[in-house]
Structure formats: C-alpha cells, structure tokens
C-alpha cells in the first residue's frame, strides 16, 4: 500500500518564467529559494510518483468539451503547450498505471473524473516543477480541476474529491511512496479590469484557515470570498483538494508574499503529519 510521503502547495504563473525580472532581484531570489526548498523536500521524501493537482488553462480543453475534473493516465507528457512560454520543450514521464487506478477508485467513490491518455501540459504544471527543480525526475499523474471557465466545481466538491483521492492513493498496491503537489492561486486576476490586483488580506486569511486545520471554515471562506480575490484565485480549489487528501495532517505555511508585479499572491506550504 502506498504512503503519501509529501503534500505541498504552491502558486504558479507564467510570469515566473516569462517576465521574472518584473520584480526586484532580492524578491525574486526569495521566491525562487522557496520553490527550490519545496523541490528539495519533495526529492528528500523519495516519492515514486507525483500527483500534480493543477488546472488546464484552456489548452487541452476548450468550450466544446470541458471536464470539471480530469485525471491523466499517460506514460509521458509533452510540455509546454504554450508556444509563447519561455521554457525548454521536453517530455515529462507519467505514471499511466497509477492514473488509471485513481480513475477507477474515484469512480467507485462516486466521483466522475474524465480520462485523458494524452495531455500536453501547460505552465500550471511545468512552472512550479521547473522552479522546484523536479521537472524531469518523478513520474507524474496530472489531475486537472476546472478553475478557468464557469460553471466551476464547488469548493466543497473539490475538498471532498481530495479526501477521496487521498484514500484511493493509500490503497494503491504497486508503489510504496507517492507525493502530491497542488498548484495555483492564491489571489490574482487576469485579463479583466482588475488585472494586477492582489488581495493580500484574502490570501493571509485563507492561509490562516489552512493552518488552523479548519476544513469547513476553508471551504466556507473560499466559497464566500473568492470573487474578492480575482479569477485566478479560483485555483485555490487545488489547495482544498490537497487539504482533503492530507487527511488531517497539519498545514505549515512556508512562504507568502503579495507580488503585484507578477500579478499574483505567491504562497508555498506543506501538510505534515
């Protein structure tokens, strides 16, 4: 049976790769150091597979067919899908068997994730892995939650999905050590008149509730206040899913900074038993 040996969460933005110099060097180095520390912690936990909870930014899915939840079950994932992203083109290894297992188990748990055996991953998976320095080593299972085009799955549903995901992972017979990286958020807003807004008060309260371990409180706060934190803040769904998978493990905030010139509230944290 697999043990979940590490559960981390971090923000992502293409700006990290495309316009890193939009912020002061000292600030940038502090953020990049936070990502490297996360990567070192993931590597030190020696996972045999890494679940990446993220979202597809309308690259693999379009309005003709847009799953609320999708689990990848492919042996490899080309990346990046964005022709404009400043990142080396490469192929990341996937764990197709684990993806297929999670699909089956989550169906049995009354969730209905879509199946994908071919995804070209975008910055939402690549950027945090790249900055963490674990972008080519660990076989991935991408799990993509629709945060980009309403109607969106509820915050409550995403937390419950995470609970079921954690249970399913712990029953996986073929590996001993798996890790989870949840990525997105925290407050930010793209391509609207509010673009550039970072809601630091929202971010700090969200992180405080995670640290308090109050799942119902996090779900309620997220549901009621996400519209004050921008369309990019809808990505806190991945943090909620990770919290569910953590099964009561304590959340530690490692880093937070409001970074308006990267358009994003950058948070990094970890659930530890």
């Amino acid at each position: 049976m697999a043990e979940i040996v590490a559960i981390h969460a971090a923000s992502h933005t293409p700006v990290m790769l495309n316009f890193p110099d939009a912020i002061a060097a000292s600030e940038r180095e502090e953020i990049f150091a936070g990502f490297r520390a996360m990567g070192a912690a993931i590597a030190a936990a020696r996972p045999q597979a890494l679940i990446v909870l993220s979202d597809d930014h309308v690259h693999n899915f379009f309005l003709n067919n847009l799953p609320a939840l999708c689990i990848g079950a492919a042996p490899q994932y080309p990346t990046p899908v964005e022709h404009w992203l400043k990142a080396e083109k490469r192929i990341l290894p996937g764990d197709a068997a684990l993806g297929a297992y999670l699909l089956s188990r989550l169906m049995e748990s009354d969730f209905d994730p879509a199946l994908s055996m071919e995804l070209t991953l975008d910055h939402g998976v690549l950027a945090p892995l790249e900055l963490a320095g674990v972008a080519r080593d660990i076989p991935l299972v991408p799990i993509l939650i629709n945060c980009v085009q309403p109607p969106l799955p509820t915050m409550r549903r995403c937390h419950a999905f995470g609970v079921a995901l954690g249970r399913a992972l712990r029953t996986y017979p073929a590996l001993e050590r798996v890790a989870i990286l949840a990525t997105g958020g925290i407050s930010h807003d793209l391509a609207t008149p509010r673009m550039g807004m970072v809601n630091e008060a929202f971010d700090r309260e969200f992180l405080r509730l995670l640290e308090a371990g109050d799942a119902a409180g996090v779900v309620k706060y997220s549901t009621e206040h996400v519209h004050e934190a921008g369309n990019g803040a809808e990505e806190i769904r991945m943090w909620l899913a990770a919290m569910g998978a953590a099964d009561g493990a304590h959340f530690h905030r490692h880093y937070y900074r409001a970074v308006p010139n990267w358009y994003t509230g950058i948070g990094i944290g970890e659930w530890k038993a």
Binding site: V58, V148, L190, A191
Partner: peptide, 9 residues
Amino acid sequence: GANPYLLRA
C-alpha cells in the same frame, strides 16, 4: 466575453 485565459494568452 473572451475567456480571460484565452485573452491573456
């Protein structure tokens, strides 16, 4: 009504 991610990209 451009999707914000499509518009940004």
